[in-house]
Design a binder for these strands. Sequence first.
DNA 1: TCCATATGTCGAGACTAATCGACATAATGG
DNA 2: CCATTATGTCGATTAGTCTCGACATATGGA
Lengths: 123, 123
Amino acid sequence: MESDQAILAFTALAQSTRLDVFRLLIEHEPEGLPAGDIARHMAVPHNTMSTHLAVLTRAGLIEAERQSRSIIYRAKLDAVRVLAGYLVKDCCGGRPEICAPLIAELTPCCAPQTEAVKEAAHD
Amino acid sequence: MESDQAILAFTALAQSTRLDVFRLLIEHEPEGLPAGDIARHMAVPHNTMSTHLAVLTRAGLIEAERQSRSIIYRAKLDAVRVLAGYLVKDCCGGRPEICAPLIAELTPCCAPQTEAVKEAAHD
DNA sequence: TCCATATGTCGAGACTAATCGACATAATGG
DNA sequence: CCATTATGTCGATTAGTCTCGACATATGGA
């Protein structure tokens, strides 16, 4: 991951409405939500929300797909993985003694024990 | 993690100088670096750097400790873990099918469980 | 075609952040 | 103490972001 893209992502998440939208969209994986519903859910004018959604999209954190009159937004979970990886893995600079404890903390949430999951994650 | 603190952290990292400083300090774990060295390393005036270091400190991403005339800054690896956790674990809202693949991607870097996996991470 | 619905774009005002010169504070040694 | 080194704070300027009214575009149906 380029640091320019990381900065885009951090900038996008460094705003409460956008952070909330991003988490809302993760909750609604994998169906997604239309722009109007998102705006109503957050009690934000539709044009303001449109701007926020554009920022998140440019940052690669969400993606849009037109469906008839609505435009459905979805979280890009790949982006979460890449960003978390940028924080943990790339930042550690290949020094397992630093990032191993970080990963150890994350793993209990939902450990990827099986080979099947490892295969799925291998891009 | 409170979302307010997450926003502080994302704001702090959403700036190229600060992101570089943060990564520099992770490279220099656990000794840390004095403020002056950091400023020189980044070719930034000392007062500008002081402001950036204050932002990172307020965000809880680094910490300062006076050592004679110098003030040594260190990355708080706990913060990395918490922030990555906020992205991956909290955002998934307890839905393993979402975050398991994300963690699976991170694990090969330096898995915390077994020596065997650590060996595999070197390929 | 004309209207209603859904969303995006533009532009202006208000707010916030980044930078850096000048000055202030803190520690150390002579 | 005074000078020196190391760092932080203040204030002003500049640059960028957030918000939202007004307008524009896209889709589907009467």
